[in-house]
Design a protein around this nucleic acid. Structure first.
Lengths: 282, 282
DNA sequence: GGCAGCGATACCCCAGGGGTATCGATCCGG
DNA sequence: CCGGATCGATACCCCTGGGGTATCGCTGCC
């Protein structure tokens, strides 16, 4: 199977419409129809049920859609990482580290400093991204290594080392009555009148239903809290980045958050290995 | 990048010789040279240093070799799993479970029985393989789910659930003086005169240096022990499969062995999900 | 210096990927 | 119930590019 065929199939499987898929691919519809038929013939499998009015995925088609996405990510990653390895000047290639914007601030700074001081250290580019994006960046090769936060981020499919575990705190506008409490419980944090917890954007770009404002990164969230429109429960290390217009209260029964450094299992290059070693010794 | 180009590059990178690589690929040498040049031009990267006497990988080439192998595995897996999903009769596709031949005997039997009794269970094919092969089978799609044993097998890149943890025992021919001991230490087990521990075959098909016979699965190993040519340290659950010509002694300081059920992170199909659910409830 | 080994180049052929025109089936509005 | 709109499949054509053979140019080596 050629990657072109996989790309074609994914386009059709996502659009469920040969015409639109062809348009998206920048080709005409007939060659696309032919390519899919040929793919089906070679696989000995019907991938799509087509009536002349609608297209549906068969069970085999659903399997191929999942697998093809993973395979195309892997091919894309190969291309990107090779390009980066080549262009990073003659000599040792750099490494791209992905982390959530606004999270893991001092840990990240310490890691970068400590690693830069190592002998044989390689240049590190930091890629700040939205919540939940790191997984995709690692998978398609835009990043080589990432800082993730369990249990929020999934480390499925990656190698990882734990760096730090911390408890969470409730973040409120300074002066809110609850800030005088020594600690709160989770059910108190979720039910503050007028200060709902926010809804985080999912990987697919949609937001869960419910009350609370929609947010996609920490800066947005903290601003909303400062404006008195929301409360937040975040790992306690975020306190170092708060202005004095925000106050924190420990949440006793919130799940603890583990910061991990993760990388694709097959691509433990020298740069990644060094960064991981430095991180675990921090 | 097309998978053909990746296959071509991997062949050359492994052979470090255009002629042999072309032969392996079943094409002539000139088109292979051209394909690699074109790949290099498109990537904007030199992948191979070629003098007219020798070919070496550049740094970018080494990156691409690693990444290309992973990508080709993913493409191969896509093809195989789709074929299986299609041919598994009309209706629900089966699942292939990989496990080491001779290991996890009763656990496996219990799992298969319990799962088969579930409503909506899917046919399960069991694929018995050599030590350390499961990783490759999962990666290239010949298997969908596997029973692995940490710390011997790496679960890098897979999702996994722990099933059972057990300690290890020393296996000796019946009547050996050490069998009268209530327990032994690891350093005693490794130094038995005339009964060396075996050398396991690595993933690359080679054996580590040292004394001891070369083995690749449990059946071979147990036969060697029965013949008085080796001793073995194995998880205690293997006792249920020993004839009375073999005896066991607990090893106090051997690492504990955890049996896990693992699967590729993106491919949690209905069959795999059900099997994992059943396994964790066992 | 002649020779053997190896990758690159030159040149040719045709399979196949891509395009346009059109067909055939199906759904829908009137 | 009919005509038009929609959509995937088919027919046919063009030409890119993948694959082949012959050969060159370079490099070690006896």
């Amino acid at each position: 199977m050629e990657t072109r065929e996989l790309r074609y199939f994914v386009a059709v499987a996502e659009e469920l419409h040969f015409g639109r898929a062809a348009q998206r691919l920048g080709i005409a519809q007939p060659p696309l129809s032919r390519a899919i038929s040929r793919l089906e013939r070679r696989l000995g499998a019907t991938l799509l049920d087509r009536t002349s009015r609608a297209v549906h995925l068969t069970e085999a088609g659903a399997v191929l859609l999942r697998e093809a996405r993973a395979a195309l990510d892997a091919v894309e990653a190969a291309e990107r990482r090779t390009r980066r390895a080549a262009q990073a000047g003659t000599g040792t290639a750099g490494v791209v580290l992905a982390t959530k914007a606004g999270a893991a601030g001092e840990l990240l700074a310490k890691l970068l400093d400590a690693y830069a001081a190592e002998p044989g250290a390689v240049p590190v580019d930091v890629l700040l991204c939205g919540v939940g994006e790191q997984e995709r960046l690692l998978r398609d090769g835009r990043a080589d290594v990432a800082l993730l936060h369990r249990p929020f981020d999934s480390i499925a499919g990656f190698d990882a080392e734990e760096l730090r575990t911390e408890s969470q705190v409730l973040i409120l506008p300074a002066g809110h009555p609850l800030t005088r409490r020594p600690h709160v419980r989770m059910d108190e944090a979720t039910g503050i009148p007028g200060l709902p917890l926010p809804r985080w954007r999912g990987r697919d770009g949609t937001y869960p239903d419910g009350p609370g404002p929609e947010v996609r990164d920490h800066a947005q969230l903290l601003q909303l809290v400062a404006l008195g429109r929301a409360a937040a429960v975040l790992p306690e290390s975020c306190r170092s980045q708060l202005h004095d217009d925000l106050a924190t209260v420990p949440v006793l029964d919130a799940p603890t958050v583990t910061t991990v450094i993760a990388w694709p299992p097959h691509s433990r290059s020298r740069g990644v290995a060094g960064l991981v070693r430095t991180a675990t010794r921090l």
